[in-house]
């Protein structure tokens, strides 16, 4: 078998990133859009950790910051979602058009 190099990890990360982008752009359900954002952040994290294997630990520290950011983003995003659901009884992105008057 071919030994596993950094490029292998980068390819996996790129695949996850593209999947996340597809999810964000195509799905109507806001919860799944938020989950796709988590996928994108994970792809970025995988890249950072894979590079930190070659160039020192800075990448891993950044991955931890990204995890912190993801936690904050999920909390605020889901809070907005609940507030919105209470007012409009929908969680579809294309029906969130309160600013289009």
């Amino acid at each position: 078998m071919v030994p596993i190099t950094t490029t292998h990890y980068l390819v996996v990360a790129a695949a996850l990133f593209v999947l996340g982008v597809i999810g964000v752009l195509t799905r109507r359900n806001v919860v799944i859009v938020l989950m796709s954002i988590e996928l994108i952040l994970n792809a970025v994290n995988l890249n950072l950790v894979a590079f930190s294997r070659m160039w020192g630990l800075h990448g891993q520290v950044f991955a931890i910051f990204v995890v912190v950011d993801a936690a904050a983003e999920a909390a605020v995003g889901l809070g907005i979602l609940i507030a919105f659901f209470r007012n409009k009884e929908t969680i579809n992105v294309d029906e969130i058009d309160l600013l289009k008057w």
């Binding site: 904050a72 909390a75 889901l78 809070g79």
Partner: peptide, 16 residues
């Protein structure tokens, strides 16, 4: 990052 988390906590509580 800790400040960001604090802001996120307050934001989530206010929103929900």
């Amino acid at each position: 990052a800790s400040l960001l988390l604090l802001v996120a906590i307050i934001g989530a509580v206010v929103m929900a």
